[in-house]
Write a protein that binds this DNA or RNA. Structure first.
Lengths: 234, 234
DNA sequence: GGATGTGAATGCATTCACAGCA
DNA sequence: TGCTGTGAATGCATTCACATCC
């Protein structure tokens, strides 16, 4: 049986995207197979972790031989839902919204932005890339009409919650939120928050905890002997 | 003793930013104190978790009374290093880079972009916001001169690793990476990756695992009785 | 009564270590 | 020999539950 799925730990799911990236690279280099060790090395993880992650959704490797790149690419795309086109809308065409609206990275990954919305009357009607900014009031209609699954929020903080609910109520299933308010607990829709300022705070904290790389001009204080430790931050 | 610090779990650090956000909001509403419960509710976490997190760096609450908003805001800023100005540079002025260069969210959080760099000769010399795009070759000089701590990478995937190393070698301590390559294991510098396409994949996966909110017009299948569960995604 | 701080218990994710297969 | 798949062991983070104090 092709494994139950359904119960994969979140950290694993997060790594699947990384695996897919790396395997696509191998595919473009015509590498037919890979080992858990080689993939782990490329990403700074451990081989056991890679194996466990992949084993969650079936037995793909061949003992002694490794995994087939193309097979895994196929399966990972299936799991992440990028083997077919997924539609998305964007709300909020400010700085970040504009950048996202013209981002070329979506299409090759199986996502397509089919509508961009704002409430500012001065913006409505303007073109951004190939899309024309529409009134937020028309979002629900578009979502229903095209069966849009994902929403991207790039509005100011105070408007975010309201937009998130509107998206959910119109049938959207998942939200990527760039507004600096955590929307994780909005009921009925999966949200992931990207907060640039908060990320900077994190790095600022982390980097103040570690010694200066410069001052260790010598090989940076030989790692305290032991198996490679995976770095959690990713 | 004001607690050892130095050993705070990463998930906790990530939440500190959220706490700070929320407390700044309370401060602007002139709320003098808060309880672990109220903060937890606002963010979709549990009270015990908030208490544990805060207890990592001292005893701030008063039994029976709660915590002082202003005291905690002060301390959190200290910990996250946003009580003083932190300088950053940006490399790669494409779509996303341009948006970040004009993002107004940095300053109020204690970060300041002091230089933007690119390798494209057609871009060098152009102004973006208040800054003028400079040649990447001049980055190291600027970093040393001003003691810049943080770097933001917004270049194409294949250039990212090289830029990261250049940043590290010039003395930068932490990197926020928007290029779709994981740089987590670059030695000598703390990296956090933001990969928009990967985040969409995550949401796409997660949202395909849960039932449709619409079709559950009834109270969505009464949560299987139990204490509130914190949502990990944040 | 209300709310903190914290050991103890639980629950998960990671790592180990090895059997098994090509 | 090389490398997977996986139970067992470890290591952490979360949650519980309660002593403690205003």
């Amino acid at each position: 049986m092709p494994h139950a799925l359904g119960n994969i730990p979140e950290p694993t799911v997060r790594r699947l995207s990384l695996y897919l990236r790396q395997l696509e690279k191998l595919e473009s280099e015509s590498q037919p197979t890979f080992s858990s060790q080689s993939l782990a090395d490329a990403l700074g993880l451990t081989a056991a972790q890679v194996r466990k992650d992949l084993a969650y959704f079936g037995q793909f490797g061949r003992t002694g031989l490794g995994y087939s790149v193309s097979q895994l690419v196929h399966r990972l795309r299936q799991i992440l839902g990028t083997d077919r086109l997924t539609l998305a809308v964007l709300v909020g065409v400010g700085n970040i919204g504009r950048a996202l609206a013209t981002y070329e990275g979506f299409t090759p990954k199986g996502f397509q932005l089919i509508g961009i919305f704002d409430t500012d009357p001065r913006k409505i009607g303007r073109k951004v890339g190939t899309l024309t900014i529409d009134s937020l009031a028309n979002m629900a209609k578009a979502v229903e009409k095209y069966g849009v699954r994902l929403g991207i929020i790039a509005v100011p903080a105070q408007a975010a919650l309201q937009v998130a609910r509107a998206m959910r109520d119109s049938g959207i299933r998942g939200i990527l939120n760039f507004a600096p308010v955590p929307l994780s607990h909005v009921e009925g829709v999966k949200v992931r928050n990207i907060d640039v300022a908060a990320e900077l705070e994190q790095i600022n904290y982390l980097s103040s905890q570690t010694p200066d790389y410069q001052s260790a001009a010598q090989p940076p204080a030989a790692p305290p002997r032991g198996k490679p430790r995976a770095d959690r931050s990713a």
